[in-house]
Structures are given as structure tokens and as C-alpha cells.
């Protein structure tokens, strides 16, 4: 069971590779951004899962509780999520403008248009 002992990391790696693959392989600009999101999400999970203490509760001071989860990674990742949302918004805004300028969101068609200039 050692192999699955850190199953959270396996999930992280799986998501990371999926996202990365989508970014690289797809020529549709929107899909690339979705891939980027999956890629970022894997990192969020990496952070959150490392704050987990087995048997720990939410970090609120209460009677009789001595074991807390580490709250810091959650806080950090809130920030990272905000950054991710901003990136997605900006990326999608760019895609809209690209669609206006080129009439397509397929990378190879855009390249073809620029080359023919």
C-alpha cells in the first residue's frame, strides 16, 4: 500500500500532466486556457493537501481540541486562486480580441493568416 500511500500526490501529478498536455496539444485557444486552469488546479490541491493533519480539525480555538490542520496553505492558495481567476479572465479577454481581429480562435489558422501577410 506504500504505492498509494500518498495518493493525493498521484492525483496532483495526474491533473498536472493532463493540464499540461491540453495546453501543449490543442490548437484551440480557449481549450488551452482550460488546460492551464487544470494545470493550476493541480497546484492548488498540492498546497491544500499538505495542510491536512490526520485527525486534525479546522483551526478554530475550541475546548478539548489540540490537533488542527495547518491554515496557512489555505490562505496562500486563496491568493493563488485569485491570481488564477485573473489570468483566466485576461486570457479569455485576449481570445475575444483575437477572435475579433482574426475571425478564428484556432492557432494554426491564425498563423496561416499572419504568414500570408
Amino acid at each position: 500500500m506504500e504505492f498509494l500511500g500518498h495518493y493525493n500526490y498521484w492525483i496532483v501529478i495526474f491533473l498536472m500532466m493532463t493540464g499540461f498536455y491540453v495546453v501543449i496539444s490543442h490548437s484551440n485557444l480557449v481549450r488551452k486556457i482550460i488546460g492551464l486552469n487544470i494545470f493550476q488546479t493541480s497546484v492548488f490541491i498540492l498546497y491544500i493537501s499538505m495542510g491536512k493533519m490526520p485527525g486534525g480539525t479546522a483551526p478554530i480555538v475550541a475546548e478539548g481540541v489540540t490537533l488542527y490542520s495547518n491554515p496557512l496553505p489555505h490562505v496562500l492558495i486563496l491568493t493563488a486562486i485569485v491570481v488564477g481567476v485573473a489570468t483566466t479572465a485576461l486570457g479569455l479577454a485576449l481570445v475575444v480580441r483575437i477572435k475579433e481581429a482574426y475571425g478564428t480562435v484556432e492557432e494554426d489558422e491564425i498563423h496561416a493568416q499572419d504568414e500570408s501577410l
Binding site: 485576449l94 483575437i98 481581429a101
Partner: peptide, 12 residues
């Protein structure tokens, strides 16, 4: 308009 694709590429 190539500025848009350049920016997108950089964003990714």
C-alpha cells in the same frame, strides 16, 4: 493584431 497573439503566447 499580432500584439494580441504575442500577448496570448506570453500569457500561456
Amino acid at each position: 493584431r499580432r500584439a494580441l497573439t504575442a500577448s496570448y503566447q506570453y500569457l500561456i
